[in-house]
Simulated assay, not measured.
Amino acid sequence: MTLDDLLAPDSVIPDLRASGKAALLDDLARRAARALDLDAGEILAALVRREGLGSTGIGAGVALPHARLDAVRRPYGLLARLREPLDFEAVDERPVDLVFLLLLPTESGGEPLNALARVARQLRDPENAAALRAARNAAGLSALVSGRSLGTG
Rank of each mutant, 00 (worst) to 15 (best):
L116T: 03
A46G: 04
L101R: 01
L98Q: 06
D97M: 04
L25T: 03
A35Q: 15
L98V: 12
E111N: 04
P14I: 08
L78M: 07
N114P: 00
D15I: 03
P112N: 07
L25C: 10
A80V: 03
A120C: 09
A80S: 14
V119G: 01
T106L: 13
L82S: 08
R49P: 05
A115V: 13
L25V: 11
D27C: 06
S149M: 13
G20E: 08
A138I: 09
D87K: 02
G77D: 05
D4L: 10
P112T: 03
A29D: 01
L44M: 10
V91F: 10
P65S: 14
D37A: 15
D4N: 15
A18T: 09
P95Y: 02
G52P: 04
G110T: 13
V96G: 01
R31D: 04
G151E: 10
L86T: 04
A135C: 06
G77K: 04
N128A: 12
D15H: 15
L16I: 08
P85M: 10
E107M: 12
Y76K: 03
P65K: 08
G59M: 11
L47R: 00
A130M: 08
I13M: 11
E89K: 05
R34V: 13
D10Y: 06
A63S: 11
R31I: 08
N137P: 12
